[in-house]
């Protein structure tokens, strides 16, 4: 299995404690990953992806293979198109006026941009967690979690209750909210709100979960909780996370993709590789400079 192989690679190169720790996962999770069927495993392939805002090209020719059921971190200087790129994966980019995408992005062999793919459905398979926690203020905690299920329809009330509990447990939030499921989601703390957003994202069982700087609005304790959660979720979901925090990238990710900007401000992929390697032994001088500067 590709993922298994990569795991051994990771431990082999994981010089730093932190990195080795990040790579070591419970055996049960590995087994689960191994048993997942290949057809819906959540393998993402970006091929020559460019994204524009009107005439301005914010992302240029990105080709990237994302391993299923692992965490891939997108890092790079501010404005290099990380958010733009991640938003092309769930077809969110095109919802902005004048915004276009070229190239192809496929999920388990299906081109997400082919004409017979409904972007609304694509977003149920590729979930997204945003920079700022955004629970729906008019919905209760449990309604927030069930919002996706209710959109899809066909789930009975009792099933929904079970899925709500399960999702909240997986998002490590259940114990904190089980007595106030009917209170508004906005009554929670920032970190809890973000875990609520994660719960509502995984409630619809997506294959991919995108996270755009999910901890940037949170304090260090809440950040650690979310990072632990991301590691746990990687057993079941392909996770792509944008982060400006190098420590976070090294703690949570298996793979790291480093982006930079050209003179025309178009973002491009500099290099990608196992996180341990990227942080200890990057191939490109540009990557090394950025990582050293940011770790400083």
């Amino acid at each position: 299995m590709a993922t298994e192989k990569r795991k051994t690679e990771n431990s082999a190169t994981g010089a730093k404690d932190e990195l080795a720790q990040a790579a070591a996962r419970p055996a049960a999770q590995a087994a689960q990953r191994a048993s997942a069927s290949e057809s819906d495993s959540g393998r993402l392939t970006l091929d020559n992806v460019s994204a524009r805002y009107g005439a301005f090209r914010a992302v240029k020719d990105v080709t990237l293979a994302v391993r299923p059921k692992s965490v891939t971190a997108l890092i790079g200087p501010s404005g290099c198109g990380k958010s733009t790129l991640i938003r092309t994966i769930n077809r969110m980019h095109e919802t902005l006026p004048g915004a276009t995408v070229s190239g192809s992005i496929s999920l388990d062999g299906v081109d997400l941009y082919s004409s017979d793919v409904d972007p609304v459905r694509a977003r149920r398979v590729v979930g997204m967690v945003f920079q700022k926690p955004n629970p729906f203020p008019t919905m209760s905690i449990s309604e927030n979690v069930s919002s996706g299920l209710r959109l899809t329809g066909g789930t009975s009330k009792s099933e929904i209750a079970g899925i709500v509990e399960d999702s909240l447990r997986r998002a490590a939030l259940w114990d904190e909210v089980k007595d106030k499921l009917n209170q508004p989601g906005t009554s929670l703390s920032g970190g809890q709100q973000q875990r609520l957003c994660i719960a509502r994202t995984i409630a619809v069982k997506p294959r991919v979960v995108l996270m755009d700087e999910p901890c940037s609005a949170l304090d260090p304790v809440a950040t650690l909780k979310i990072e632990e959660l991301i590691r746990d979720l990687a057993a079941e979901y392909t996770i792509v996370i944008v982060t400006h925090n190098m420590q976070q990238a090294s703690r949570v990710s298996d793979e790291t993709a480093f982006f930079s900007m050209d003179d025309d401000r178009a973002g491009y992929l500099v290099e990608t590789g196992p996180t341990a390697e990227m942080f200890t032994n990057p191939k490109q001088a540009l990557t090394e400079g950025y990582i050293q500067g940011r770790f400083g």
Binding site: N90, T95, V120, R124, N134, P137, M139, V204
Partner: peptide, 29 residues
């Protein structure tokens, strides 16, 4: 109504109409 709420619901797989019905109208109520 903040764009983050609209995008949050679009990201859950909501159509424009569903965003209006479930997020915009209730929030602006």
């Amino acid at each position: 109504v903040p764009i983050s709420l609209r995008e949050g619901y679009i990201g859950m797989g909501a159509t424009k109409w569903e965003v209006i019905r479930d997020v915009i109208l209730p929030t602006a109520r």
